[in-house]
Write a protein that binds this DNA or RNA. Structure first.
Lengths: 262, 262
DNA sequence: CGTTTCATTGATTAGTCTCAACGAAGGTGG
DNA sequence: CCACCTTCGTTGAGACTAATCAATGAAACG
């Protein structure tokens, strides 16, 4: 059976039939992940109504655009993406990456408009929520509201760490931190098989994440590869030695606590 | 009458008498600010019970420490502070500044522990909340819960912009952005008199915010001063030409929307 | 009046950027 | 099926930005 494809138009038109869903909430692919918290039955029932459909995005697709005032609220079900901002003259900064279990578009839902964009790095499947039901969620499911606040707080925590990295770590430390960070995040949602992981990145993405030029990024990655920490493949990065990355970056790693998702 | 001073011990002991408060919630000094949203009567009643006391912190005091697992939840009533993280070897990155109306300590309340520290730049007065009543707030005051999520989302928005700045702006643009940003934030809470503002910073703080060395920061500030954008005083910075700062930084400024506070 | 903290300046070095050129792989159209 | 084009990664050279080192002055403090 082919993957069902919804473009933004059919999204806007509103897709309410739960029958055609590949991933009904009670069979959410995220619920089996040991690092994610389980939901109560009533919560799942509510979420089934909160969910309005699924979105499949190709690699390279812009899922959310900066400045859009009618942004949707999504949870990532599968795939890799990234959040970024740009300056007028095109300089781009990647702010963070989004992986399965992450909630995106909250800013666009709460504030007037999104202040960043999100693009798919690999094919992604997203769970689409009805933003105008968010107040109902806060009214009737305080635990879910608490979870959303928790998720927002976690994003801030990640950003703090990334900002420390970009501001104060050397290029080599910064690169090592980035790959250790992404490796651990991917691991926590079951994306690492046989202790190996290939990330769907170009060196341009890495450069825009670290705040470096692409040339210097290339030379920095070569150093990490020479030390045996990673291997750069055609259009992606394979992590070889996580411990070495942790050592080089002087980073203590992610907390182990199970976290909520919506 | 002298300002009442509470140290952390008397805080921990719990100060419940509302009679000794300088700033009861129904006379909160923040409520007169036009950029902040008003509360309903029942909300103010609840918040009076949510509040456990007031904390006065001298300049230079560490209000919250990274790693503390019993952090409090505060709203800033007056004064300047900053959030920061450090690497093992002492390199410090200032993540953001805290001004009146800002909620701090949310991470420490939701997660197990704080992942950043907060220090006072000037004398500060903080409103102290009882963290274990936060679930009750989410249960009974969904609008306040929504506000807290909004506030967390705004912090993320600010961090996004700061990260873009540190990652992709030049030293001069970055410095101009920082001062324009702080000027606008201070203005929105009524700290700017006669269109002039002096910020209680040392050049070390600026350096640790911009991700630069202190020497290069000094030279960059000299350039901005030479252009007439600002004046560096003894231990602080006076903004002279906001428009010039906006122009140099290529920044569009803060949104004007009134925002919630707790 | 010594001591500390901050700001300032010049000289040198290290890190990073820009420019430029080229190779490999994959896709496209003739 | 091959020639061409595009994207991505790689490398070297030179220019520029920012860091480090070092020294000094000014003000605040006890």
């Amino acid at each position: 059976m082919a993957t069902r494809r919804l473009d933004n138009n059919s999204l806007a038109a509103g897709m309410t039939s739960t029958a055609t869903r590949q991933f009904p909430c009670d069979k959410c692919p995220l619920q089996g992940l040991s690092h994610l918290q389980k939901h109560e039955k009533e919560e799942i029932a509510f979420l089934s109504g909160f969910k309005t459909g699924e979105l499949v995005a190709d690699a390279g697709t812009t899922v959310l655009v900066e400045g859009a005032n009618s942004a949707h609220l999504f949870t990532v079900l599968s795939g890799w993406g990234f959040r970024y901002k740009t300056l007028e003259d095109g300089r781009r900064q990647i702010l963070n990456y989004v992986l399965p279990g992450d909630l995106i578009g909250l800013q666009g839902t709460l504030m007037k408009e999104m202040s960043h964009s999100i693009e798919a790095l690999s094919p992604m499947i997203l769970c689409v929520f009805q933003r105008d039901k968010l107040p109902a969620l806060f009214r009737n499911f305080p635990n879910l509201a608490y979870d959303i606040t928790w998720i927002a707080s976690r994003e801030e925590q990640m950003l703090d760490e990334i900002l420390l990295s970009v501001g104060r770590r050397t290029a080599l430390e910064r690169a090592a931190y980035l790959f250790a960070f992404l490796f651990q995040r991917a691991q926590s949602v079951g994306m690492v098989k046989n202790n190996k992981l290939t990330m769907p990145l170009t060196q341009q993405h890495v450069a825009d994440t670290l705040g470096l030029s692409i040339v210097h990024t290339n030379k920095t990655l070569k150093k990490l590869a020479a030390r045996g920490a990673l291997r750069w493949l055609d259009r992606g990065c394979e992590i070889v030695d996580e411990d070495l990355l942790l050592e080089v970056s002087k980073w203590q790693g992610l907390p182990e606590t199970p976290r909520p998702y919506i």
